[in-house]
Design a binder for these strands. Sequence first.
DNA 1: ACAAAAGTGTTCTATGTACACCCATGT
DNA 2: ACATGGGTGTACATAGAACACTTTTGT
Lengths: 247, 247
Amino acid sequence: MDKDEQAFLANYNPDQYKRPSVTADIVVFTLDRDNDLNILLIKRKGHPFKDCWAIPGGFLEVDEESVDETASRELYEETGIKDVYLKQLYTFSNPDRDPRTHVVSVAYTALVPKQQLSIQAGDDAKEARLFKIQYDIEGMKFISDDITISETMLAFDHKDIIRTAIMRIRGRIDYEPDAFELLRDKNEFTIYELKRIYESIKNTTLNTANFRKSFIRNYVNTGICIDLNKKRTDTGKRAAELYKYNN
Amino acid sequence: MDKDEQAFLANYNPDQYKRPSVTADIVVFTLDRDNDLNILLIKRKGHPFKDCWAIPGGFLEVDEESVDETASRELYEETGIKDVYLKQLYTFSNPDRDPRTHVVSVAYTALVPKQQLSIQAGDDAKEARLFKIQYDIEGMKFISDDITISETMLAFDHKDIIRTAIMRIRGRIDYEPDAFELLRDKNEFTIYELKRIYESIKNTTLNTANFRKSFIRNYVNTGICIDLNKKRTDTGKRAAELYKYNN
DNA sequence: ACAAAAGTGTTCTATGTACACCCATGT
DNA sequence: ACATGGGTGTACATAGAACACTTTTGT
């Protein structure tokens, strides 16, 4: 670096231009006992959209972290979830998406097995809870035992973020190994446990024989998954062969 | 909105938290006369990385525009290119990717037919120029008539952005209609013009019979492309059937 | 006559889908 | 015995890759 550039940097005043805020917002997907696709929403403790439901997220700590790091940190702070599979989804940046100021939101998708989810409301959340996702032609609805939330009730533009996330995960499931991230245990699972995950995400039922065949072809024969030559015997049904997802 | 929230917003001070700068940076791809994949680079007029080559881009105008709009605006201001197919690529946000301050960069990919490219250096660029992309195991090189740029010579983390863009366009080409955006004229093209685009992006040669078959199946039979029942006769070779990309 | 671009046909294999059927286990 | 989850085999249509061959045009 030459002297000229050093001088420039020493004199650089970042406040000469207005700057936006930047947040990471996370769409957390999991499957419930019925193997239905669920999403994690939090009830906002503070303004704006106080008491509204929203996806977890928060502000980038400038000079300290990348937005990827913001995503894992905020997810942990707001919900107690850590060590999860986070993927950048899309960046939302309409000037009026947040009433406070111009907030650029980098959205992430997280896939978490239910067992790994010990949800607890954190700093900025009154409550964190899982909702079944119901999507009909009219729009999305988010359903838990005693609350049903329509997409228009969500804070900010979070309905757009969630819709983008659902479309993305559906589009990716057939050619990316996302499904494995939703398994109870990636290192010991049966073909039918995996099949149920595909079915929930694609919202259809799949043929067992065909699913099995393509799993063997695409994952076992390629070494991506390994046959453990062990069976799951505790299910009360016929013992099922166990496989391991190999990184 | 209730009174409480109105009061909150009236008192909201966005400067209570440090904020990052946000830029849009654009990887512009086109094909040259040899049908090789080219990228547009600009020579930076100002600090930092003065006189280094970089991809075009610039700062978000806070409260005025989305980052998508920043991308089209900056592309026009720096290179004179407008009305192009811009797709959000990925958001880069390492705190130290810019020596001035924490700059979050939302990267975009643009696919532009060469004919539509009347490149001229603009405000922040000394020069704007197309480079052939050469990628071997060692890394990428960018080659024009009298300059060869190695990836390490690029400003900021632009080599990462470009590498991500190349991987993305290659991954997408087989199942997204990106290739059409590089045609001289989407409303009048021959199968072999389209084939050449696929070949450049995938960096291989394709079989004519097979390409034709899958084009007919996937695009003509589905109505995505329409057979114009007209021929291109001015090529000096056997006249070729013309097709139109339908939306 | 030949090269180059445009277009056709045939063959083999891999993949996707449908479906019929067998095995193991708890109630 | 039978329902349920786990597992196998057969059959057909479609998609992809390989390759041989014809037609049109300018030089």
